[in-house]
Design a protein around this nucleic acid. Structure first.
Lengths: 209, 209
DNA sequence: TAGATTGTTAATCGATTAACAATC
DNA sequence: TAGATTGTTAATCGATTAACAATC
């Protein structure tokens, strides 16, 4: 086990490993080698062993990996064992789509509350999650732990909303605003879903064919 | 100009360059050096010059780059000059959120039609875009050019829907289904927005702090 | 001309792949 | 035991950064 400085590339591969291992588990597969997992996932066996070895020794020579065990280990590494708390800020089309369709619990999160500026939504629920006024953010955050805020507010208020949440102690952001957020605090983490970057990349690829 | 084999890393940086150049243009900035652009974007001047040089010589020694000109060049490289045609398949919460909020035209696409299985939607419009039955996909595609399909259908029908669209000639997919799609055809391009991968990565980061 | 900044080549760094001894 | 497969070290590959001659 090393665990010194895990590269971003490795971290971004973990969810995919986890998903494949869940699938194998569901199918009742007990055991897998880096070789056969690599074939399934279209990566080299070397990379799989190298990646796993960043976190420990999960296999057995001559046998391979126990699927159930490895799945749990990677789940633990990802931080899925006890749920983190999450709120959503900005319950427009996209925010509602996320609350209705996305399985936050399977990603280790409990979606506790949503906030918006539209008074018509106050007191309502979206998929069982209560919607409050953004004015109540301060009081809410004083009494509830929040690890991550989903930011799905308009671009114009993206940074100011983030600033406010950071001031209130939020340190993780799932950022859907298409704005590059920054923070003075060094321990704040932004995970960006940048739709435009993604579609422009696709545009490039279909253009240069 | 080389243009041999542009790496994925470079391509994924182009949209960001484009965005920053658009901002500079809007602000009325005429001229910028790789040095100052690098400072703004938090990348090295070397990388910027290296990246641009894959596509041509857009600068001038001793001067830097003309912002307007460079913006246009990168827009052209990305394939923005004449719009590609796009349809959306699966007009649920997420599909509607995209049609209502996302500026397809700014990414070089004309969003022409949406398709769903919900009969209540047939004949309606979402943000000016007509919604048809998925049964009409065949006839629609016979008479309309479609470069990209936005896939926002349920996981269960993700691959089959993709297969059908591929058979009908679609070669680009903006894939929101969280399913890893595959194609026998080698020239099909999938650009995936995988929400779960992204949130799991965030989960890892807030866990290991 | 002198100063600035490019485009490009060379050097460095990091990530991926291959190889193999250890061992189940 | 023999065969299989790991974890890890070494080799390779590719991407980033530094350096600098060319030149506006």
């Amino acid at each position: 086990m090393k665990r010194e400085n895990i590269s971003d590339a490795v971290i971004r591969r973990l969810p995919r490993y986890y998903r494949y291992l869940c699938d194998l588990c569901d199918k009742g597969v007990n055991r897998i080698s880096s070789q056969s997992l690599g074939t399934k996932m279209n990566v080299t066996a070397s990379q799989i062993r190298q990646d796993f070895s960043c976190f420990g020794e999960f296999g057995q020579q001559g046998y391979g990996y126990n699927v159930e065990e490895l799945k749990c280990e990677i789940g633990r590494i990802l931080g899925l064992e006890n749920p983190h708390h999450l709120i959503l800020v900005g319950a427009g089309n996209l925010g509602r789509a996320l609350l209705n369709n996305f399985s936050f619990d399977r990603a280790g999160f409990s979606a506790d509350a949503a906030f918006d500026t539209n008074a018509q939504l106050f007191g309502s629920e979206i998929n069982g999650i209560p919607v409050y006024s953004v004015d109540e953010l301060d009081t809410y955050l004083q009494s509830h732990p929040v690890d991550v805020a989903v930011l799905s507010v308009p671009q114009a208020v993206a940074q100011s909303t983030a600033d406010r949440l950071i001031r209130l102690g939020v340190r993780g952001f799932w950022n859907f605003t298409n704005v590059e957020l920054t923070s003075r605090e060094p321990d704040v983490i932004f995970e960006n879903i940048h739709f435009a970057n993604s579609l422009l990349t696709l545009c490039y690829r279909i253009t240069h064919r």
